[in-house]
Design a protein around this nucleic acid. Structure first.
Lengths: 170, 170
DNA sequence: GCCAGATTGGCAGTATACTGTCAATTTAGA
DNA sequence: TCTAAATTGACAGTATACTGCCAATCTGGC
């Protein structure tokens, strides 16, 4: 029995590789997001952080990173920029001097309300080229794959971590 | 007829958004790639660049950026790092003083041969959690979507640009 | 109560990504 | 031919991402 030949070393193999396609699609997604939201000067990451803080007021940076599955180091500078734009406040926690609690400012809550239609348009545009049934199929598979690969990522999603900061009050 | 209610402002909407899922999946893909290839000290982008230069020896940086759909500015530093590792050579083009032609060095060609099995393992691992039929389905839809969204990305893929540098000789 | 270990946030360093701008050079059109 | 426009590579500036490291702080076991 002949042994399997080695895979050819050509760029065409890259074009069909999952990793390459995920990278391309992510770049396309960011590009569409920025185009639809250019009036708001918010990046996709900043948007996700605002939404998460809105959903979990008083969360701290470490838990926030678990809730949106973003690297903690990266998140530090993201929060800094949101603070500089006056969308987010950081308050020291009375019971733990290490922790700083995150809250939306009035501006932060306002821009969130205003940007949502643009974000919805962006999300729709990303899938627009596919037939509706294919969109559902793709999203279903992607949700599965991301979930099943959760532990493989450096910062696994831990949505339930958000509840911990509520402590005895929650 | 009642008007459609505004979408809720919660993190759960983000979890189901295409843009968020593409970002997560890309991060997972990079994480898996780096894990499988940690013995080689090559990033996914550097790997793609090496493959492309191997496929198109003597390509210049601008055409290379079109062939792998990476930003030209980013690619400059990528090539610099590959040059520092002695995987890539830059030679001035005799007929156009602006252009520098890219070639793999012996080391570059060697590491490419060696890393391929690890890359194959990484690509397989990304899809492993899905059933084989679902992997095919997902890849098929993703190839379609990336292709149909090509113009929406800031750096559209122009695989055929690679042929231009051959000029009269090609 | 004390101390080892964990947690938190911050920092430095590297590597994509993208937006602009710029000078050198080439090309194309008047 | 002469010049306006295009091309190429380089650079500066911003924003993710990740790896490590660190000091301050808290917690749990003794």
């Amino acid at each position: 029995m002949p042994s399997k030949p080695p895979p050819p070393i050509t760029i065409d193999a890259v074009y069909a590789a999952p990793g390459y396609l995920f990278r391309r699609m992510q770049q396309i997604a960011v590009s569409i997001f920025m185009e639809e939201c250019k009036a708001f000067d918010l990046t996709p990451v900043q948007y996700a952080a605002l939404i998460a803080i809105h959903t979990h007021p008083g969360i701290d940076a470490t838990r926030l990173s678990a809730v949106i599955a973003f690297d903690r180091s990266t998140l530090g500078s993201v929060i800094e920029r949101l603070q500089a734009k006056d969308y987010v406040e950081r308050k020291p926690a009375p019971e733990d001097k290490r922790i700083k609690l995150l809250y939306l400012t009035k501006s932060g809550a306002a821009i969130l309300r205003e940007i949502i239609p643009a974000v919805e348009r962006a999300q729709a545009r990303m899938l627009e080229p596919l037939k509706p049934a294919d969109r559902k199929e793709l999203m279903g598979l992607l949700v599965q794959l991301v979930d099943l690969n959760n532990e493989a990522s450096r910062v696994p999603l831990r949505a339930e971590d958000a509840l911990e900061h509520l402590g005895k009050a929650g």
